[in-house]
């Protein structure tokens, strides 16, 4: 899959390219406004107008899907791409029982008899850990607690056995103890079913626990992408370095947390050159004029001129780890 995306007058996303292998979990992190949710929305074909994909393509199993007519895309959504959003209440229809919603989704996308579909619906509720699934299948969304509702949403996203799941902040609205349950569940199901997953979140801890690879987004671009261990332990891009350092550690007290000065630019005021240059502690003249592409940075790829071997930054000959 490959999806460089752009948008009308405000360029919200710029040259985003990545791929997710079968069974892989790609984490997408970034601060609010970095464009992570929009990337997810572009992939499931639910960009809100007037937003639109102005360039690039999205391919699912080699088939281009970003230019499909609405009807075809609707069939792909659910059947081949499942979506999980932050607020389970907006995903579930309050007027139908969760069983009916599961059955409807399965019957829309798969050739199943009513009885088979009902049996499978109960099976899915059991699989996501809802107690007394056979009875709860008759319940309405409001009869579930927040954590249970998110489990129903997960069942709904998975029940047509899609190849890819786009999960946008699936645990953000949940309490810590429930969060852990939901993450463990997502991880297990993705592994068992061989489903690929794009996990969008601002919570580095969730990514570290769940993802195989991670993309760090900043101001609508990918700042760094690589295996999760590399990015978390040895980030290369100065933004990732700052981001990791600013996370308060649980295992010790530090007197002064590392902080990145300033805040992320608004879409209408992204500076020329590297969008991170006003806040970057290692900025040099080239960053102010030229926008960096993703470059090999020893283990990960980072959009940073520090890692351009052809033209090393002044005063350094090899990219130093943080």
């Amino acid at each position: 899959m490959n999806s460089p995306t752009r948008r009308g007058t405000l360029v919200a996303l710029h040259d985003i390219s990545f791929s997710i292998a079968p069974g892989e979990v790609l984490g997408v992190v970034g601060e609010s406004g970095a464009g992570k949710s929009m990337t997810g929305a572009a992939i499931i074909g639910l960009l809100e107008p007037p937003g639109r994909i102005a360039g690039g393509e999205i391919r699912l199993n080699g088939r281009r899907i970003d230019n499909l007519p609405y009807e075809q895309m609707r069939r792909i959504r659910g059947r081949e791409i499942g979506a999980i959003f932050q607020d389970p209440l907006t995903t579930l229809n309050p007027l139908h029982t969760v069983g009916d919603q599961l059955i409807e989704t399965m019957q829309t996308h798969m050739d199943l008899s009513a009885r088979e579909a009902r049996a499978r619906a109960v099976g899915w509720l059991e699989m996501v850990g809802i107690p007394a699934a056979a009875q709860r299948v008759q319940s309405y969304p409001h009869e579930f607690s927040g954590g249970m509702r998110q489990r129903v949403v997960i069942a709904l996203a998975l029940c047509a056995e899609p190849k890819l799941i786009v999960a946008d902040e699936p645990t953000t609205a949940l309490d810590v103890s429930i969060q852990a349950q939901v993450i463990a569940l997502l991880k297990r199901l993705a592994r068992e079913k061989g489903t690929s997953m794009m996990l969008i979140t601002h919570d580095m801890g969730v990514i570290a626990e769940t993802a195989d690879r991670v993309a760090v987004m900043y101001a609508g671009r990918i700042a760094e992408i690589g295996p999760v261990r590399e990015v978390v332990k040895h980030p290369r891009h100065p933004y990732s370095v700052g981001l990791m350092a600013s996370i308060p550690p649980l295992d010790r007290r530090v007197e002064q947390l590392a902080q990145i000065e300033g805040s992320m630019p608004r879409l209408s005021a992204i500076p020329p050159g590297c969008p991170f240059n006003p806040r970057c502690p290692r900025v040099f003249d080239r960053c102010l004029v030229e926008r960096p592409e993703l470059l090999e940075a020893g283990g990960t790829r980072a959009a940073c001129w520090l890692y351009d071997e052809a033209r090393p930054a002044p005063g350094m000959h090899e990219a130093a780890d943080a």
């Binding site: 810590v176 852990a180 993450i183 919570d203 969730v206 570290a208």
Partner: peptide, 19 residues
């Protein structure tokens, strides 16, 4: 329950049930 940034590979044991 808190996600582990240290990536020790420790298997977390989530607390069951809800408040």
């Amino acid at each position: 329950a808190i996600p582990d940034l240290e990536m020790s590979g420790r298997q977390r044991i989530p607390v069951g049930g809800e408040v």
